[in-house]
């Protein structure tokens, strides 16, 4: 397997231009997501989904401003979200067909010709990334531009990002760079700056696409402490087995304790 490739999305330099969203759609020929004015700051695509593989969130944070006590904006957080390409990917684990697989770049990709649209990956993903597309019936998400990577190109979204908010490269290098960046921001008084998903010790074993956030993850619509759902699978089978045995036992009991015969 080649080196593990990933994304470091440094949201502290994101300017919310959405070039990543558009570049992704252009490259991957994704259909539009409908034309709905959401009145949620400058975000009109809502969240990641079958037809939005990069999504830029806009969070307006207010504080009372001295002048006349009017509400002014303190900061406007922007952040480009994407599939996390989890080390322990629930979507991949639960996919019954093998449509989801791990590539030589250690990324998680759906094979559209194999996916049967069972939809199981959809609620399995702890980040709400992958989704089934209406009409088409199959599941879709970011491929980390598998086709481009195989051709030696960087993904379309990071290529298009003007401020290098999205950085693509070997995951180890990115992690190092991210540590420095977050240290710098903290030193500059940004105490709430933190990395999200870079730690291999988190609930999904670390993500291939990790982030530098300036606030709690949930503010960006991200789960604060996601856990790969299959972590509890052995226990689940245990409980299910017990329940199955109990059911069998109960049925047997019902027959044995019921006196009448034909």
């Amino acid at each position: 397997m080649a080196e593990r490739m990933g994304f470091f999305t440094d949201t502290s330099v994101c300017i919310g231009c959405k070039a990543c969203e558009v570049a992704c759609k252009e490259w991957n020929q994704i259909p539009d997501d409908g034309f709905v004015f959401e009145a949620t700051s400058y975000d009109n695509t809502g969240m990641l989904g079958a037809s939005t593989w990069r999504h830029v969130a806009f969070i307006e944070q207010s504080r009372p401003v001295a002048v006349g006590g009017d509400e002014g904006v303190d900061r406007w957080l922007m952040s480009s979200d994407v599939c996390k390409h989890c080390t322990r990917a629930a979507c991949l684990d639960v996919c019954p067909t093998g449509a989801l697989f791990r590539t030589e770049f250690d990324t998680v990709v759906v094979q559209a010709d194999i996916c049967n649209g069972c939809g199981y990956c959809v609620p399995a993903c702890p980040y709400g990334v992958i989704d089934r597309r209406e009409g088409d019936g199959r599941a879709w998400k970011c491929t980390m531009c598998y086709d481009r990577q195989r051709g030696g190109l960087e993904p379309a979204c990071s290529k298009a990002c003007p401020t290098d908010s999205i950085q693509f490269g070997p995951l180890d290098e990115l992690r190092e760079r991210a540590e420095q960046r977050v240290a710098r921001l903290r030193a500059d008084g940004n105490e709430r700056a933190r990395l999200y998903g870079e730690s291999p010790d988190d609930g999904v074993g670390g993500t291939g696409a990790f982030f530098l956030l300036l606030d709690e993850p949930e503010v960006y619509g991200l789960p604060p402490d996601p856990v790969v759902t299959t972590r509890d699978l052995p226990a689940m089978w245990g409980w299910a087995g017990a329940a199955a045995l109990s059911a069998a036992g109960a049925v047997a009991l019902a027959f044995l304790r019921t006196g009448e015969r034909r």
């Binding site: 539009d32 009145a39 400058y42």
Partner: peptide, 27 residues
């Protein structure tokens, strides 16, 4: 489509205070 969906409608930006004064609601 890829641009139109990002800002699908003409909108005006107003402060919460002006919205209250003029009777406007978000959305």
């Amino acid at each position: 489509a890829y641009l139109a969906e990002l800002q699908p409608e003409l909108f005006c930006e107003v402060s919460p205070r002006l919205a209250a004064e003029a009777g406007l609601t978000n959305g």
